[in-house]
Amino acid sequence: MIFSILIYGSAHNSQSVHTAYRFAKSLLAAGHTLHRVFFYGESVYTASALCAPPRDEQDIHQLWKSLAETHQLDLVVCIAAALKRGVIDQAEAQRHEKPAFNTHAPYELSGLGQLSEAAIISDRLVTFGA
């Protein structure tokens, strides 16, 4: 079965990004396809490579990155939600003349159309909310 995941909960102020991660791992382990993970709203902070949690806490940015690299996942971060919150990749930093960037592959900034497409393609779209 083809799944997509929409994450809307806060990256650092809710459990949802972690619950979504466990769900993603489980569906992949069961042999299903994960077409896309779409980060929207406050979840876009997951994509910041500059998050440095304490050593005894999980690094959610790294967890998703590793899972994506292992399974060639499509991690799409809503570009509008990300840019206004200061989550920005190299290309957008140049375009907007910003002094630095903080996200890169496998996280990819793109539009809400990617979520619409995922809703069409997938048998199940599962939301993990705020």
């Binding site: 929207y40 509008a80 939600a81 539009g111 809400l112 159309g113 979520l115 619409s116 069409i120």
Partner: peptide, 13 residues
């Protein structure tokens, strides 16, 4: 606001 943005995009698709 983010829900409305989503609605407009889905309709455009």
């Amino acid at each position: 606001k983010e829900a409305l943005d989503l609605a407009l995009t889905a309709a455009a698709f």
